[in-house]
Amino acid sequence: MRVIAGTAKRLPLKTVPGDGTRPTTDRIKETLFNMIQHELYETRFLDLFAGSGGIGIEALSRGASKAVFVENNRKAAKCISENLDFTRLAERADILQMDVLAALHILSGAPPFDFVFIDPPYREGWEERVLTALSASGLLAESSIVIVEAAKDTSFDFLENTGFILRQRKEYKTNAHLFLQPAARGGNK
């Protein structure tokens, strides 16, 4: 795993040993960031279920002004810290080693995030719980974009009830990225 573009381009990133995390492949990460690159500069980025931090670090490398990483696993949080130090992006980052729902509660009242990336364990129902909590948190502006990485077969029938509208869906071989916007913003683009 490496940083694809920006100030930390080509730098390798550590990953957490074992199968407790599921790093986004370089190819999928590159596709994702090609889709949002023009909206990323000087934004605030929230990386939930951050794993080794590859997504939030890519956002910082490409011009995000601030990234907050939320990761409950102690070894993964340490890995994020080491990766931030290695890429020299630590000054623009905060790491919260805690449960995602607790972190959303603690972050409540912080300035809104422009982007939120959610990559929970697949098929455990986290998507609905986190989106519901995020919708009520006050951490989103009308223009915020929430990106959920999920198994391709994950049902999002609950989406309307969580306060979000599907803006775009990008499918890969086994997973998908859903680009969501707060419902108050109106119809699809």
Results as ranks from 00 to 15, higher is better:
K29G: 13
T31S: 15
I36H: 07
A76V: 14
F179D: 11
N188V: 09
K78E: 13
K152C: 04
K75I: 10
S61K: 01
V148A: 05
A102D: 10
C79T: 15
W126V: 02
N175G: 06
C79I: 12
P121A: 06
T87L: 10
S52D: 05
A183Q: 15
C79L: 08
R22L: 09
S52M: 05
A59N: 07
K189I: 05
S135P: 00
Q97I: 01
A141V: 03
F113T: 04
K9H: 15
K152E: 11
K9E: 12
L11K: 14
E71N: 03
D47M: 13
S108L: 01
A141N: 05
A136Y: 10
L140Y: 02
V70G: 12
L107T: 08
I36M: 11
N73F: 13
R2Y: 06
D157V: 07
E42R: 11
L101M: 06
R2H: 04
F117T: 02
T25Y: 05
N83Q: 00
V116K: 03
A103R: 12
A90C: 02
S108W: 06
K14V: 03
T31P: 06
A77D: 06
Y41S: 12
K173S: 15
R27H: 13
A176Y: 11
L13T: 02
K152G: 03
A8R: 15
S143Q: 11
E30F: 14
L140F: 03
G125Q: 11
A151F: 02
F113I: 10
K152F: 01
L159F: 10
V16A: 07
R62H: 09
G63Q: 12
G53S: 01
L131D: 00
H105P: 01
I106Q: 12
F164C: 00
A150P: 01
S143L: 06
H177P: 01
T15F: 04
N72V: 15
F86K: 12
G109T: 09
E42S: 09
T25A: 15
F69M: 10
N34F: 03
A102F: 04
Q97W: 01
Y122W: 07
L178K: 12
N161I: 10
G53V: 08
V146T: 09
R88M: 06
N83R: 06
G109R: 09
L46T: 08
S135H: 03
R167K: 12
F115Y: 15
N175F: 02
L107M: 15
Q37Y: 14
M1L: 09
F86Q: 11
P23C: 05
F86H: 11
K14F: 07
L166P: 07
A90F: 09
T174H: 10
I80A: 06
K189D: 07
K170G: 08
F158Q: 10
G18L: 08
A67D: 12
T21D: 00
A176L: 14
F69S: 11
R10K: 14
V146L: 02
T132E: 11
K170H: 14
Q37K: 14
S65H: 14
G18D: 14
F86A: 13
E71F: 04
E71P: 08
K152T: 11
M98T: 10
S144M: 02
